[in-house]
Structure formats: C-alpha cells, structure tokens
C-alpha cells in the first residue's frame, strides 16, 4: 500500500466507515488517535488496529453533541502525536424524518450534531493545520446534502450546511496548502442504515467507501462522491426542474 497519512485522528472512530478507513491507515503503519464515546468499542478497535500494523493507537473519549467540549477535544487529538496529517470527521446520526417533524428538540439536536458540531470541530482543527501549513481535514457529509428532499431534509440540511462550511474553509486554507475534503457517500451498509432494506447496486460496503477516501486523500481531492456514480445521480437530482421534482417521493 502506498504511504498514506502517518498521523491520523478519527473523530467518531467507531463509525463503520471510520473503522474501515482506519484499518487501511493501520496497515500502512500509521499512528492513530481514536475519538469517540463508546469506551469498549474504542478499545476493541484499538486492539484491531494494532494487530493490523498501526505504529501507535491512542484513545480519547468525547461526546460530540457537547459543543462546548469540542475545542478541548481538537487540542487533545492534535497533541496526541504532536500534530496530525489527517483528521477524519465521521460521526453523525440519521433520525427518521417523521420524528424530526414531530419533535422540535430532536430537529435541533440533529442540526447540531450533523452540522454545528462538525463545523466547530473542523474550525478548531483548521487553526492548527493552517499553522502547520500541511495536512488534510476530511469530513463525511452526504449526498443527502445536495438537495433538500421530503424524506430526509432535516439530516440533509445539516449535511448541506456542512458542505457549504467546508467550501468556505477550503477557500481559506488553500493558501496554507491544507486540503479540505468533503466526502459524500451514497448508501452505505453500516450501523446507521441497519434498519433499512439493503442490497442492490446502489449500496456500497464501508470498505469500498474507505478505499475511495484513501484515494481522494492521496490525490488531494476537494469533493468526493463515493461510489463515483453518485456524482452523476446527484447531478440529475439537482437539475430536476421543481415541478418534476415535486412529483417524486424519495
């Protein structure tokens, strides 16, 4: 495997996509800091990554819904190996849209966890990466952020907000040579989608997505649709004229 980033922080390290990506980094000998809220899951993942070849693995506990705690989390992750080459922000939650329509507190929480929290975290990290004048900030948003749709516009709006935030951050960090990668997966078979009927050509494995992320990081891409065909699908979805769009149900 080609040498990837050698100091990696995974925020939401027990996410299935983050686990798959972390394994690739570990097999290339990286040092990893795992940040998350599930102590047993983090230890299990750390053991796995060590056997796979990680040069070092550190664990940090954090609840990303706690916005006030984010600056300290960013600092601790940065400090674990005296700097980072890559930060992957992978946490998120996909509640049922009907729940969000019935419960304003749940809607606010969803917007916070999927938009405000990653934006604040990425911004804290940005200052560090900017000073180091190198590295990659990668955030998993979603194809759901590309157009508001009845079936998931609460989650989708947060992801869309994140996309816009990353666009601006990228603009800012370009001069410092820091890459900002916006990862937009389609349907991925993970814990998040375990309740949905899965299978069929549109569904990808976390490992497939992780492979695409590794390639996008190496090529310093700005926006990644994964798998690639989602780029075309979303181009069409975005281009659908409103009268036609309103007759769809997805």
């Amino acid at each position: 495997m080609s040498a990837g980033p050698s100091r990696v922080a995974l925020f939401g390290a027990t996410s299935d996509i983050a686990v798959a990506y972390g394994r690739r980094c570990a097999e290339a000998g990286a040092r990893l800091v795992l940040v998350g809220r599930d102590p047993a899951g983090l230890v299990a993942s750390a053991d796995d990554l060590r056997v796979r070849g990680a040069a070092a693995v550190e664990i940090l506990h954090a609840d990303f819904a706690d916005l006030a705690g984010l600056p300290a989390v960013a600092e601790a992750a940065w400090a674990a190996f005296g700097g980072l080459d890559l930060a992957l922000v992978a946490y998120g939650a996909l509640p049922d849209q009907a729940t969000l329509e019935a419960d304003p507190a749940a809607l606010a929480e969803t917007l916070e966890l999927n938009f405000v929290s990653p934006a604040v975290l990425a911004d804290r990290l940005a200052a560090r990466f900017e000073a180091a004048r190198a590295g990659t900030i990668a955030v998993i948003t979603s194809v759901a952020g590309d157009r508001g749709r009845r079936s998931n516009y609460g989650y989708g709006a947060a992801k869309g907000g994140c996309q816009r935030f990353l666009e601006g951050l990228r603009h800012r960090l370009a001069a410092a040579g820091v890459t900002v990668l916006d990862i937009r997966p389609g349907f991925v078979a993970t814990k998040m989608t375990a309740h949905l009927p899965r299978g069929g050509p549109l569904w990808a494995t976390p490992d497939r997505v992780a492979a695409d992320i590794a390639r996008a990081v190496a090529r310093r891409k700005a926006v990644l649709y994964t798998p690639w065909f989602w780029g075309f699908i979303m181009m069409i979805v975005r281009a659908l004229p409103r009268p036609l769009f309103h007759r769809t149900r997805f």
Binding site: A44, S45, D47, D48, V51, R52
Partner: peptide
C-alpha cells in the same frame, strides 16, 4: 471481524 492480539514471538493470534 476484529483482531484482538497477535504475538510476533510465538505466532499466537486471537481474533
């Protein structure tokens, strides 16, 4: 599908 421990001295793998 997690590895748990590998000892490169003895070759013992737990997974």
């Amino acid at each position: 599908d997690r590895f748990i421990a590998f000892d490169p001295e003895t070759g013992l793998l737990t997974c």
